[in-house]
């Protein structure tokens, strides 16, 4: 009984039950996680010795060591200790016949399908069909836009010209009514001068809308660099 001291009672009880029912050691091991197999094998050895003892079999000299040796062999053959390629083949052989046939058939069909898809490649006449990496250009453009001082920054460099025009049309200076006092006349003169400056500022802001032409987002230039498809030759 000393052999099962190192294992837990629950594992031992379950091993005892399985061995008693004649379940092979390899099947017993399948019930347990691989990391517990050493403990389980200890339990198996102890159980087999216990059964022999219970049934009044006087173990011949060396039986226990024989059992342990058998268990060691079984241990060596368990999935947890097999090389990966052996486990792979064993898993294949253990599979349902439908799966065994189905997997290669589906894989073959997939390969044929993939090859057929790639055969359709032609010389591109429009780079929209090419998956070149526009990320760095966009990032660069974004960085440029972000670096521009507000308010004439990102939105103007990115939005279409028409949208920019609509959004940023400078205010037209409205006519003023004549003042009724010297104080209000002076105030309105100053207001008119500041409105004049504000209108100019709006014009300056709007004037840079078309700087997007040099902001690195040129489709035509990107296309120039995409003239070549090696598959064409």
């Amino acid at each position: 009984m000393s052999e099962h001291r190192h294992t837990t009672d629950a594992v031992f009880e379950r091993v005892l039950e399985l061995i008693d029912r004649g379940v092979p050691v390899s099947k017993v091991l399948e019930e347990f996680a691989p990391e517990t197999h050493a403990d389980v094998l200890g339990a198996v050895a102890a159980v087999q010795a216990l059964i022999a003892e219970r049934e009044g079999i006087t173990p011949p000299p060396g039986l226990l060591s024989q059992i342990i040796e058998n268990v060691s062999l079984a241990e060596a053959a368990t999935p947890a200790h097999m090389p990966m390629r052996v486990r792979f083949m064993r898993t294949l052989l253990d599979m349902n016949p439908m799966v065994k046939v189905g997997v290669p058939v589906v894989a073959f069909a997939a390969i044929i399908f993939a090859v057929a898809l790639n055969r359709t490649g032609t010389v591109p006449t429009d780079t929209r069909s090419l998956s070149y990496d526009a990320g760095p250009l966009q990032a660069e453009s974004g960085a440029i836009s972000a670096a521009l001082p507000a308010p004439e920054s990102a939105a103007m460099l990115q939005a279409p010209v028409a949208a920019k025009q609509a959004a940023l049309l400078p205010p037209t200076i409205a006519p003023q009514a004549p003042a009724v006092s010297a104080g209000s006349a002076v105030g309105l003169v100053i207001e008119a001068a500041l409105a004049d400056a504000a209108a100019d500022q709006a014009i300056a802001t709007n004037d840079m809308a078309n700087a997007s032409l040099v902001s690195g987002n040129s489709t035509a230039v990107n296309n120039l660099g995409q003239f070549f498809d090696p598959n064409a030759f």
Partner: peptide, 19 residues
């Protein structure tokens, strides 16, 4: 637009100067 704005701005200013 800048010219138009400036003409209107000058008109406004002149109007208050007259007052």
């Amino acid at each position: 637009l800048r010219s138009k704005n400036r003409i209107q701005g000058d008109t406004n200013t002149e109007r208050q100067f007259k007052v």
